[in-house]
């Protein structure tokens, strides 16, 4: 082929480079993924941070439950960075003199469970309905979209109040409430993308081959919609954490002595002028978690896309 376009010529150069690299030591897919992660240092940091958060969530309550709930009235609103005290007090103490660091570690469990659960279920249900709405008849699509409109036009806090009035406040019910209120976001995005992608030539090509509807939807359309949905999901993580705290604030979410980061932010609010650290540290935990998820999802978007993947495969000869 003498007539390569310029761009594909470059890609081919890159590709022959990676090919020889692959042939040379032929790493397994897992090692390949780790290599791609290592190339993006920010994403590596994010992954390590998230791993730490997950460890806190899994083992924190088991190890630090007692320390985190023990009141110490002499240590009320103890300032941070006082390294003469026990390590749990290094980030200061809260209004009842409980160690903030220990509480943040313990609270990771509830927080991550509620946020991950709510995001996962809203993503799953929202994108499934979105795919259906995008690919079915007009009537089916209409029904699903109007349902989404109903959810969206209903103030989410009101919905939460009603549901939690009927059901007891627990982690499980909180997940259900938050998931329901976030479904329309995924649904609308998924549907809009499907409507565009289904008109693309390669979907027509698959139809001509005789591909079934599930195959077209899951094999051809979903992989292109997925990165967008994942990006929304990571952004939604922070939203859900804060929504959960406002529910706690209204007295219908997670209730003390159970703790979450959002609840800790809410509890620290009255003391903002005198003891900023009460809200700051849990707030920082929320920010860092969301930021890490964002960085990781950004990396994943590149790693999943064959057209972009070479950026992570080739070494730093660019820039």
């Amino acid at each position: 082929m003498q007539c390569l376009t310029r761009a594909s010529g470059i890609d081919q150069l890159n590709n022959t480079g990676t090919d020889t690299l692959l042939v040379a030591d032929a790493p397994s897919p897992v090692i390949q993924i780790f290599r791609m992660l290592w190339r993006d240092k920010l994403a590596t940091t994010a992954a390590i941070f998230l791993l730490a958060v997950i460890c806190c969530a899994l083992f924190g309550p088991m190890l630090l439950e007692d320390v985190a709930t023990k009141q110490n009235l002499r240590g009320r609103n103890a300032p941070p960075f006082d390294f003469s005290t026990a390590w749990t007090f290094w980030l200061g103490g809260d209004a009842l003199g409980r160690p903030l660091l220990a509480r943040i570690i313990v609270a990771a469990s509830n927080t991550i469970m509620v946020a991950a659960g709510a995001v996962f279920f809203s993503l799953l249900i929202g994108s499934t309905l979105g795919l259906i709405a995008g690919y079915t008849s007009k009537l089916g699509s209409q029904i699903i979209m109007r349902l989404a409109d109903v959810i969206m036009s209903f103030p989410s806090l009101l919905l939460a109040v009603i549901v939690l009035y009927m059901l007891p406040a627990s982690v499980g019910n909180l997940i259900i409430v938050l998931a329901i209120t976030r479904i329309p976001v995924y649904l609308r995005t998924a549907r809009a993308e499907v409507l565009e992608i289904r008109e693309r030539m390669f979907v027509q090509a698959a139809t001509i081959m005789g591909a079934s509807t599930p195959r077209i939807v899951f094999r051809h359309i979903l992989p292109l919609v997925f990165p967008t949905l994942i990006t929304i999901a990571t952004l939604d993580f922070a939203f859900v954490m804060l929504a959960e705290s406002s529910l706690s604030f209204l007295g219908i979410g997670i209730q003390p002595p159970e703790i979450t980061w959002g609840l800790m932010v809410a509890q620290g609010r009255p003391y903002l002028t005198s003891a900023w650290w009460l809200s700051f540290w849990p707030g920082l935990a929320i920010i860092l978690t969301t930021l890490s998820l964002n960085l990781l999802s950004n990396w994943m978007r590149v790693a999943l896309d064959p057209q972009q993947r070479w950026r992570l495969e080739t070494s730093q000869q660019s820039d």
Binding site: R200, M201, F202, Q204, A205, A206, H220, P223, L224, D305, P306, Q307
Partner: peptide
């Protein structure tokens, strides 16, 4: 076989 092979082949 379609006009534009860039679009008729699934990029993924």
């Amino acid at each position: 076989v379609f006009q534009d092979p860039t679009q008729s082949l699934n990029p993924r």
